[in-house]
Design a protein around this nucleic acid. Sequence first.
DNA 1: GCATATTTGTCCGTATGTATA
DNA 2: CTATACATACGGACAAATATG
Lengths: 246, 246
Amino acid sequence: MTTINEATPSSTGGAAGREADWLGAVAAEAALFGPSSSAERAADILRKQITEGRLRPGSRVPEKELAAAAKVSRNTLREAFRLLSHEGLLVYEMHRGVFVPQPTEADVVDLYRLRRVLECDVLRGLEGLDSDRLVPLRAALEHSEAAAVAGDWAEVGTGNMRFHEHLVGLADSPRINAVTARLVAELRLIFHIIAQPQELHEPYIARNRAILELLENGRYGDAADELHQYLLDSEERILAAFRSVS
Amino acid sequence: MTTINEATPSSTGGAAGREADWLGAVAAEAALFGPSSSAERAADILRKQITEGRLRPGSRVPEKELAAAAKVSRNTLREAFRLLSHEGLLVYEMHRGVFVPQPTEADVVDLYRLRRVLECDVLRGLEGLDSDRLVPLRAALEHSEAAAVAGDWAEVGTGNMRFHEHLVGLADSPRINAVTARLVAELRLIFHIIAQPQELHEPYIARNRAILELLENGRYGDAADELHQYLLDSEERILAAFRSVS
DNA sequence: GCATATTTGTCCGTATGTATA
DNA sequence: CTATACATACGGACAAATATG
């Protein structure tokens, strides 16, 4: 399985600064949180490290060091691992440890298939929507637009994803929301292995705006059609980027 | 992993007269399993107890006794709890313990909404399906029919659910399969609350047969339409039964 | 191919806090 | 309100598997 990554062969030996900086971020984050269970807290912290790209796809996640950094016991940390592995953000390999998964092209296809079904269906079922509900969508869109001006393409990406999360949220379906949260998390993983932020996110600001305007005019069916094409194009672009990496 | 269980349910003849014998069943089951992690093994066992109705919705699941019955440590069992709570088969209540959830009418509505979207979409995307792929559907259907003759309505129910699991399996989408597995598990919970097996399962044998025959004739769109109506009717019937219980 | 070091898998004992009788 | 039971969490220990030299 010695496929891609590992593009920095020179190292392996120490250099505490670079590879340990996300461990420091974990330790810092650990102080902020409040109540709830320790395992969930640890899972929240780890999730953030992964989705924000400090823990890259393919990385090993060692129990011992991470337990120390997050200041929880190994047992508690393992509960957090189980949580995250069920979300698709970690994978267990028996007696080898936990890893951040590396999605494949097949995963991209599968994931987009589900996105198309769910998101388009949500839009088609919005008859009689209160227009106040669209406020979070607009906020996410403006977040992306501001980030684009600043040239922060990663932040454009999170804005776009937030747009789609709020979009499916319009359906008021806890289960659809849960599935979407998982899909978005996996999507972030994919973005991190491609690492061409601008080409990946910038074109979709305008298209999200178009969808939002259709929704504001109550043209839900048209919005769904536009979204369908949007998702086909996005999938195609990601697959192309994938091939250029491998 | 989350495959479809094999037979040998030993079929719990009578429906009466035992409260704690599921603890014994856990201990018995614990001996059978082979490799894999202890946590996953414990989760498999517990999942079976829940979906087969020996652990009823609303039950408390005490970690100490269960750890003894399954012969695993409490730490390991807690990992299994986390797994199952993410599948919707258990819920955590902070400092109170773990419980088998009691789905509400709102859950039924939400769940059926997702079922309709996913299952119907799968059927509409089956152009050019190899007819061999339908064999498991027929097997599940015949399982239901045989159980109906024997008057074992619970088994009719598992046959019907297996039919639908294989149906979505035709899409070859791991993520759709995973979501469906979760939905089916929750559905079983609901059936166990209502406990009117015959009225709930018997009418759908014929309808599953109708869907299968449409599929065998390549009429995927018609099958999807039939399935859509099927799911609407099923939801309505469950909601009615729900109201008569509460 | 072998011996060793490291890491995971699992269990136990125990201390603390929370909910309930 | 106190007492008890139980969940939460920790740290140590050992076996088993893997990775390394």
